Amino acid sequence: MQDTLVQKRHHENLWQVLQSYWQLTKPRIIILLLITTAGSMWIASEGQVDPVLLLITIFSGALAAASANTINCLYDRDIDYKMKRTRHRPLPSGRIQPFHALLFAIVLATISFTLLTTFANLLSACLAMSGIVTYVVVYTHWLKRHSSQNIVIGGAAGAIPPLVGWAAVTGELSWVAWVFFAIIFFWTPPHFWALAMMLRNDYASVNVPMLPVVAGDVTTAKQIWIYTLLLIPLTLLLAFPFNALGAVYVMVALVLGALFLVKAWALLERPADVGVAKSLFKYSIFYMMLLCGGMALDTLPLSQQVDAAIASNLDMMLTPVSISQIFQLPW
């Protein structure tokens, strides 16, 4: 049945060919990865990132992510064909042949590695390649079909782009870069499990042991709440104690974190409500985008002035005061 369907699917023009290869890269997933890369580069350069380096690193990161997503589609084409939601993707529908998809992924990865090595450094290029390996081998091949904790461990692949951005700017990895890695790592389970709760029946139909399928909605909602609780203080580490960002970022992080907790608590109270899970999933995307926006906002001159004023006032408040100063006595 599948072979018959594959033989009947053909492209009618070059535009359709380009569209199919574009769909193979899952571009909507890539955008968020690039935002975290840019955010990391912004912090590493203290708001003074080289625009050429920024563009090349983002473009190279997009190619690396596209390569990983293409191999993911290649590996999962059997289960994609069984699900109505994914049956019409380029590989299961037969619009692209597996060998061509593999060749496409290799070319994308090669270009990404070459650009990063040439215009950034070898460390950033190796990190980008490690992201591909982690996503394809650790998540797609090893964990996705065998463990309900697949997205927890496999989520490390999605946390590598900030490391790539940091390394591209500095040529090394500091503790701040690893904190950013941890933020993405702990953000991934609430983000992806909310989606899995929406698509539980699809995953169950192809025996993919996502947490909602294996443990149910109640347990999944509890896990989402725990990871969200852990995520919020992690975001504040960029300001205290590492001083990479200031008060403006802290205010943004606290507001966004509070809203995230509200969404997670709502799901904890109504774990069977798909609408609540969908709301949390959508918010998690905006959360990460706006958090990175808060990082960029904190580096603007006006924000720096606000940070300096707050720091000055805190110093005055914390400076020891003598009794004579308190009562304004002459002795």
Rank of each mutant, 00 (worst) to 15 (best):
R87A: 08
G293S: 06
K84M: 06
L108M: 11
M289I: 15
A44G: 07
P190F: 06
A221V: 02
T235W: 06
R77S: 09
L291N: 03
L195D: 10
I285R: 04
V6S: 12
P212V: 13
E46W: 08
A157I: 00
A196N: 08
F240D: 04
M316P: 01
V138S: 09
L230E: 06
I160T: 04
Q2K: 14
S312M: 14
I160V: 12
A177K: 06
G155P: 03
S303L: 02
D50S: 11
P90M: 10
W42I: 11
P162I: 03
T117G: 08
T319M: 12
A266M: 14
P233W: 09
V107Q: 05
T219Y: 10
S284R: 15
P190E: 07
A64P: 04
A204E: 08
F286Q: 13
P241Y: 08
W178V: 13
Q304F: 00
L24E: 00
Q23M: 15
Q97D: 07
V255D: 12
I232F: 01
P92A: 09
F185L: 13
K84G: 05
E12R: 15
G155C: 08
V213L: 05
M210D: 10
I79P: 13
I29Y: 02
A159D: 00
L290A: 08
L195G: 08
L237S: 06
G39A: 05
N207L: 05
P190A: 10
L291A: 03
I224R: 00
N150Y: 09
M83E: 01
T235P: 03
A120Y: 05
L63I: 00
I226H: 13
Y75T: 08
M251L: 15
L54M: 08
A159Q: 00
M197D: 13
F327Q: 12
G158S: 05
L291R: 03
M317P: 01
Q223A: 10
L229W: 00
D3G: 05
T170S: 10
N69I: 00
E46V: 03
N72K: 09
Q16A: 12
I310Q: 01
L318Y: 15
L115P: 02
S130A: 15
C73L: 13
L102D: 07
V213T: 05
L261T: 03
Q304T: 00
G257H: 03
P233A: 07
T219V: 11
K263Q: 15
T110P: 00
K263F: 11
K26G: 00
L18A: 07
P241D: 07
V206N: 12
A182Q: 15
C126K: 09
A66N: 08
A157C: 05
W175D: 13
F59L: 09
V262P: 04
M316N: 09
M1I: 10
S324D: 10
M83N: 01
G61N: 03
P233C: 06
L123C: 12
A38P: 06
